[in-house]
Amino acid sequence: MMMSLFLAGSSLLSFNTGFAIWILISLIVFLGIMYKFALPPIIKGIEERETSIQSSLDAAEKALRDAEKIAKDNEDVVREAERAAQKIRKEATKEVEEFRAERLEKAKEDAEKLIEDAKKSIDQEKQKALNELRKEVADLTIEATTRLLQKNVDSETNRKLIDETINDLSKN
C-alpha cells in the first residue's frame, strides 16, 4: 500500500520534463496562431466598433446641440417676423388713417371753394345784371324823357341829370 501511494503521490506532484517540453511547444504554436490569425481581426474589429460608436455618439450629441440651436434661431426669427408684421400693420393703419383725413380735408376744401366760386359768380352775375338793368333803365328813361321833352332839353344835360338821379336811387 505504501508503495502504491508513493507512486501515485509522486506522479501527482512530479514535474515531467518531457511533458513540459510538449506543452511549451504547443503553447508557442497556440500563441503564434492566436497572435497571427485569430486575435488581430478581433482586436481591430472591436476597437473599430468602439471608435465608431464613440464617434456616432459624439456626432449625435453635436447634432442635438445643433438642432437645439436651430430651433432657438427659428423661434427668434419667428418672433422677429411677428414683430415686423405688427409694425407693418400698424404703419399701414396709420397711413390709411392719415390718407383718409387728408382726403377728407381736401374734399372739404374743394367743396368750400366750389361754394365760394359759385357765390362769386352769382355776385358777378348779379352785378352784371344790375349794371345792365341800370343801363336799360337809364336808356329807357332817356328815351322816355326825350319823348317827353322833345327838342328843348339838351340831351347831354339831361343824361347828367338822370345819372345823378339814378345814382341817388341806387344809393338809397
Binding site: M2, L5, F6, A8, G9, S10, L12, L13
Partner: peptide
C-alpha cells in the same frame, strides 16, 4: 493542503 496530501500519501 498540498502538504497535507503529501503527508497522507506518506511521501
Amino acid at each position: 493542503a498540498i502538504i497535507c496530501i503529501l503527508l497522507a500519501l506518506g511521501v
